[in-house]
Protein backbone atom coordinates (compact mmCIF):
# COMPACT_ATOMS: atom_id res chain seq x y z
CA UNK A 1 0.00 0.00 0.00
CA UNK A 2 1.48 3.34 -1.04
CA UNK A 3 1.64 5.81 1.77
CA UNK A 4 0.77 9.43 1.09
CA UNK A 5 2.44 12.24 2.96
CA UNK A 6 2.18 15.99 3.02
CA UNK A 7 4.83 18.32 1.73
CA UNK A 8 4.89 22.08 1.34
CA UNK A 9 6.03 23.71 -1.87
CA UNK A 10 6.16 27.48 -2.21
CA UNK A 11 3.65 27.70 0.64
CA UNK A 12 1.24 25.25 -0.95
CA UNK A 13 0.44 21.95 0.78
CA UNK A 14 0.72 18.95 -1.51
CA UNK A 15 -0.13 15.34 -0.91
CA UNK A 16 2.17 12.90 -2.59
CA UNK A 17 3.31 9.29 -2.40
CA UNK A 18 6.10 8.79 0.09
CA UNK A 19 9.49 8.28 -1.56
CA UNK A 20 8.14 8.85 -5.05
CA UNK A 21 10.12 11.35 -7.16
CA UNK A 22 9.54 14.94 -6.09
CA UNK A 23 9.45 16.43 -9.58
CA UNK A 24 6.15 14.92 -10.83
CA UNK A 25 4.55 15.59 -7.46
CA UNK A 26 5.37 19.29 -7.86
CA UNK A 27 4.23 19.32 -11.49
CA UNK A 28 0.94 17.64 -10.61
CA UNK A 29 0.30 20.42 -8.12
CA UNK A 30 0.60 22.90 -10.95
CA UNK A 31 4.13 24.07 -10.21
CA UNK A 32 6.25 24.70 -13.25
CA UNK A 33 9.53 22.81 -13.01
CA UNK A 34 11.82 22.91 -16.04
CA UNK A 35 13.47 19.69 -17.09
CA UNK A 36 14.95 18.07 -20.14
CA UNK A 37 16.10 14.69 -18.87
CA UNK A 38 13.08 13.59 -16.85
CA UNK A 39 10.28 11.45 -18.25
CA UNK A 40 7.62 9.71 -16.20
CA UNK A 41 7.97 6.51 -18.15
CA UNK A 42 11.50 5.88 -16.92
CA UNK A 43 13.57 6.17 -13.77
CA UNK A 44 15.07 9.57 -12.93
CA UNK A 45 18.71 10.14 -13.76
CA UNK A 46 19.64 13.67 -12.65
CA UNK A 47 21.68 14.66 -15.69
CA UNK A 48 20.33 17.99 -16.90
CA UNK A 49 20.23 19.70 -13.47
CA UNK A 50 17.38 22.01 -14.54
CA UNK A 51 14.81 20.80 -12.05
CA UNK A 52 16.79 22.30 -9.19
CA UNK A 53 14.82 23.23 -6.10
CA UNK A 54 15.73 24.14 -2.57
CA UNK A 55 14.65 21.77 0.15
CA UNK A 56 14.40 21.80 3.90
CA UNK A 57 13.86 18.48 5.59
CA UNK A 58 12.02 17.80 8.79
CA UNK A 59 14.37 18.28 11.70
CA UNK A 60 16.64 20.75 9.91
CA UNK A 61 17.16 24.33 11.04
CA UNK A 62 14.50 26.57 9.51
CA UNK A 63 17.02 28.65 7.62
CA UNK A 64 19.03 25.75 6.23
CA UNK A 65 18.20 25.12 2.58
CA UNK A 66 19.83 22.64 0.28
CA UNK A 67 19.92 22.94 -3.48
CA UNK A 68 19.06 19.64 -5.15
CA UNK A 69 17.50 18.26 -8.29
CA UNK A 70 13.87 17.31 -7.74
CA UNK A 71 13.73 14.46 -10.26
CA UNK A 72 15.81 12.14 -8.12
CA UNK A 73 14.88 13.49 -4.72
CA UNK A 74 12.23 11.50 -2.86
CA UNK A 75 9.01 12.89 -1.43
CA UNK A 76 9.51 12.82 2.34
CA UNK A 77 7.08 13.53 5.12
CA UNK A 78 7.14 17.17 6.15
CA UNK A 79 9.47 18.23 3.34
CA UNK A 80 9.46 21.93 2.49
CA UNK A 81 10.38 22.96 -1.04
CA UNK A 82 11.21 26.29 -2.63
CA UNK A 83 10.99 26.21 -6.39
CA UNK A 84 11.13 29.91 -7.10
CA UNK A 85 13.85 31.35 -4.87
CA UNK A 86 16.55 33.62 -6.22
CA UNK A 87 19.12 30.90 -5.73
CA UNK A 88 17.06 28.36 -7.67
CA UNK A 89 16.42 30.80 -10.50
CA UNK A 90 20.07 31.84 -10.69
CA UNK A 91 21.38 28.31 -10.84
CA UNK A 92 18.80 27.14 -13.37
CA UNK A 93 19.93 30.01 -15.57
CA UNK A 94 23.58 29.06 -15.20
CA UNK A 95 22.70 25.46 -16.03
CA UNK A 96 20.65 26.23 -19.15
CA UNK A 97 23.46 28.49 -20.30
CA UNK A 98 25.77 25.47 -20.22
CA UNK A 99 23.23 23.32 -22.03
CA UNK A 100 22.82 26.04 -24.66
CA UNK A 101 26.56 25.96 -25.27
CA UNK A 102 26.42 22.18 -25.54
CA UNK A 103 23.57 22.02 -28.02
CA UNK A 104 23.20 25.46 -29.58
CA UNK A 105 21.22 24.13 -32.52
CA UNK A 106 18.39 22.53 -30.57
CA UNK A 107 15.23 24.65 -30.69
CA UNK A 108 13.87 22.98 -27.55
CA UNK A 109 16.95 24.11 -25.62
CA UNK A 110 16.59 27.65 -26.94
CA UNK A 111 12.94 27.70 -25.90
CA UNK A 112 13.86 26.51 -22.44
CA UNK A 113 16.53 29.20 -22.19
CA UNK A 114 14.02 31.85 -23.15
CA UNK A 115 11.58 30.51 -20.61
CA UNK A 116 14.25 30.79 -17.91
CA UNK A 117 15.20 34.28 -19.00
CA UNK A 118 18.55 33.56 -20.59
CA UNK A 119 19.32 35.52 -23.72
CA UNK A 120 23.06 35.59 -24.10
CA UNK A 121 25.25 32.57 -23.81
CA UNK A 122 28.68 33.51 -22.58
CA UNK A 123 30.22 30.12 -23.29
CA UNK A 124 31.90 28.61 -26.29
CA UNK A 125 29.23 26.85 -28.36
CA UNK A 126 29.70 23.35 -29.73
CA UNK A 127 28.35 23.99 -33.18
CA UNK A 128 26.32 21.24 -34.73
CA UNK A 129 25.74 19.32 -31.52
CA UNK A 130 22.18 18.40 -30.61
CA UNK A 131 22.63 15.70 -27.98
CA UNK A 132 22.75 16.90 -24.36
CA UNK A 133 23.62 13.42 -23.02
CA UNK A 134 20.48 13.20 -20.90
CA UNK A 135 20.33 9.45 -21.48
CA UNK A 136 16.55 9.33 -21.99
CA UNK A 137 16.92 7.30 -25.20
CA UNK A 138 18.97 4.64 -23.43
CA UNK A 139 16.64 4.57 -20.45
CA UNK A 140 13.53 4.12 -22.56
CA UNK A 141 15.23 1.50 -24.72
CA UNK A 142 16.27 -0.41 -21.62
CA UNK A 143 13.45 0.12 -19.14
CA UNK A 144 10.39 0.36 -21.38
CA UNK A 145 11.23 -1.46 -24.60
CA UNK A 146 13.69 -3.89 -23.05
CA UNK A 147 15.91 -3.93 -26.10
CA UNK A 148 19.01 -2.50 -24.35
CA UNK A 149 20.57 -1.19 -27.52
CA UNK A 150 21.97 2.11 -26.28
CA UNK A 151 24.56 3.03 -23.73
CA UNK A 152 26.92 5.79 -22.72
CA UNK A 153 30.55 5.46 -23.60
CA UNK A 154 33.59 7.41 -22.50
CA UNK A 155 33.65 9.91 -19.71
CA UNK A 156 34.21 13.60 -19.15
CA UNK A 157 34.30 15.62 -22.34
CA UNK A 158 34.48 12.43 -24.40
CA UNK A 159 31.23 11.04 -23.11
CA UNK A 160 28.92 9.94 -25.88
CA UNK A 161 25.65 8.11 -26.37
CA UNK A 162 25.30 5.30 -28.82
CA UNK A 163 25.44 1.62 -29.51
CA UNK A 164 28.26 -0.43 -28.01
CA UNK A 165 31.54 0.18 -29.89
CA UNK A 166 29.57 2.54 -32.15
CA UNK A 167 28.61 -0.43 -34.32
CA UNK A 168 25.16 -1.00 -35.74
CA UNK A 169 23.36 -3.09 -33.17
CA UNK A 170 21.49 -6.23 -34.10
CA UNK A 171 19.33 -5.77 -31.06
CA UNK A 172 17.80 -2.53 -32.36
CA UNK A 173 14.22 -3.25 -33.42
CA UNK A 174 13.70 0.15 -35.00
CA UNK A 175 10.75 1.02 -32.79
CA UNK A 176 11.67 4.70 -32.57
CA UNK A 177 11.01 5.10 -28.85
CA UNK A 178 14.41 6.79 -28.54
CA UNK A 179 13.34 9.45 -31.00
CA UNK A 180 10.01 9.93 -29.25
CA UNK A 181 11.57 10.76 -25.88
CA UNK A 182 14.61 12.71 -27.10
CA UNK A 183 14.13 16.24 -25.77
CA UNK A 184 16.38 17.94 -28.30
CA UNK A 185 15.75 16.22 -31.61
CA UNK A 186 19.15 14.57 -31.53
CA UNK A 187 17.86 11.13 -32.41
CA UNK A 188 17.12 11.27 -36.08
CA UNK A 189 15.10 8.66 -37.91
CA UNK A 190 14.45 8.71 -41.65
CA UNK A 191 11.48 6.83 -43.07
CA UNK A 192 11.30 6.39 -46.84
CA UNK A 193 8.71 4.04 -48.30
CA UNK A 194 9.16 0.77 -46.53
CA UNK A 195 12.66 1.61 -45.28
CA UNK A 196 13.55 3.07 -41.92
CA UNK A 197 17.04 4.39 -41.16
CA UNK A 198 18.06 5.08 -37.59
CA UNK A 199 20.55 7.75 -38.61
CA UNK A 200 22.22 8.20 -35.23
CA UNK A 201 22.54 4.49 -34.44
CA UNK A 202 23.41 3.31 -37.93
CA UNK A 203 20.74 0.64 -38.32
CA UNK A 204 18.45 -0.03 -41.27
CA UNK A 205 15.00 -1.56 -40.96
CA UNK A 206 12.35 -2.86 -43.27
CA UNK A 207 8.73 -1.99 -42.60
CA UNK A 208 5.96 -4.51 -42.75
CA UNK A 209 3.27 -3.05 -45.01
CA UNK A 210 -0.32 -2.91 -43.89
CA UNK A 211 -2.04 -5.93 -45.39
CA UNK A 212 -4.90 -3.72 -46.49
CA UNK A 213 -3.51 -0.37 -47.62
CA UNK A 214 0.22 -1.15 -47.87
CA UNK A 215 1.35 1.73 -45.66
CA UNK A 216 4.12 0.90 -43.20
CA UNK A 217 2.87 -0.53 -39.90
CA UNK A 218 5.99 -1.34 -37.94
CA UNK A 219 9.43 -2.70 -38.63
CA UNK A 220 9.83 -6.41 -39.17
CA UNK A 221 11.98 -6.74 -36.08
CA UNK A 222 9.59 -4.69 -34.01
CA UNK A 223 6.64 -6.87 -34.94
CA UNK A 224 8.60 -10.04 -34.32
CA UNK A 225 9.70 -8.65 -30.94
CA UNK A 226 6.13 -7.72 -30.00
CA UNK A 227 4.71 -11.06 -31.11
CA UNK A 228 7.20 -12.81 -28.91
CA UNK A 229 6.00 -10.76 -25.97
CA UNK A 230 2.26 -10.78 -26.63
CA UNK A 231 0.81 -13.88 -28.12
CA UNK A 232 -2.18 -12.63 -30.10
CA UNK A 233 -3.28 -13.04 -33.71
CA UNK A 234 -0.89 -11.81 -36.37
CA UNK A 235 -3.58 -9.70 -38.05
CA UNK A 236 -3.38 -7.11 -35.32
CA UNK A 237 0.28 -6.53 -36.09
CA UNK A 238 0.05 -6.28 -39.82
CA UNK A 239 -2.84 -3.88 -40.09
CA UNK A 240 -2.23 -0.18 -39.76
CA UNK A 241 -4.26 1.80 -37.22
CA UNK A 242 -6.34 3.51 -39.93
CA UNK A 243 -7.33 0.27 -41.57
CA UNK A 244 -7.94 -1.33 -38.19
CA UNK A 245 -10.40 1.41 -37.36
CA UNK A 246 -12.12 1.17 -40.69
CA UNK A 247 -12.30 -2.58 -40.47
CA UNK A 248 -13.81 -2.38 -37.03
CA UNK A 249 -16.35 0.23 -38.12
CA UNK A 250 -17.40 -1.95 -41.06
CA UNK A 251 -17.76 -4.87 -38.72
CA UNK A 252 -19.93 -2.90 -36.35
CA UNK A 253 -22.20 -1.77 -39.19
CA UNK A 254 -22.35 -5.27 -40.70
CA UNK A 255 -23.33 -6.79 -37.40
CA UNK A 256 -26.13 -4.28 -37.11
CA UNK A 257 -25.14 -2.71 -33.80
CA UNK A 258 -26.06 0.72 -34.98
Amino acid sequence: MMKTVKITADGQTIEAVLESPLLPALQDAGIDIPTLCYHRAVSPYGACRLCLVEINQKGWDDDWWKLTTSCNFPVLDGLTVRTDSEKVKKHRKLVIELIMARAPGAPQVREMAERLGVEDVRHRPQEGELCILCGLCARVCDEVIGAQVLTFSGRGGLKDMGTPYAEASEKCIGCGACEAVCPTGAVIIKDEGLRRTMVRWGTEHEFVPCRICGKPVGTKKQIAYLREKINIEEDIFVTCPDCKRQKYAEQVVAEGHL
Binding site: Y45, A47, R49, V95, A101, R124, L133, G154, G156, G157
Partner: peptide, 21 residues
Protein backbone atom coordinates in the same frame (compact mmCIF):
# COMPACT_ATOMS: atom_id res chain seq x y z
CA UNK B 1 38.92 16.74 -13.39
CA UNK B 2 37.24 17.40 -16.72
CA UNK B 3 38.86 14.24 -18.09
CA UNK B 4 37.96 12.28 -14.98
CA UNK B 5 34.40 13.56 -14.62
CA UNK B 6 32.03 10.71 -15.36
CA UNK B 7 30.19 13.14 -17.59
CA UNK B 8 26.78 12.32 -16.21
CA UNK B 9 25.66 15.74 -15.14
CA UNK B 10 25.75 18.94 -17.12
CA UNK B 11 27.39 21.16 -14.53
CA UNK B 12 30.43 18.99 -14.00
CA UNK B 13 30.91 17.89 -17.59
CA UNK B 14 30.09 21.10 -19.45
CA UNK B 15 31.02 23.46 -16.62
CA UNK B 16 34.52 22.09 -16.28
CA UNK B 17 34.98 22.03 -20.03
CA UNK B 18 34.02 25.69 -20.39
CA UNK B 19 36.22 26.53 -17.41
CA UNK B 20 39.14 24.77 -19.03
CA UNK B 21 38.65 26.72 -22.26
Amino acid sequence: LEDESCGKCVTCREGLRQMGW
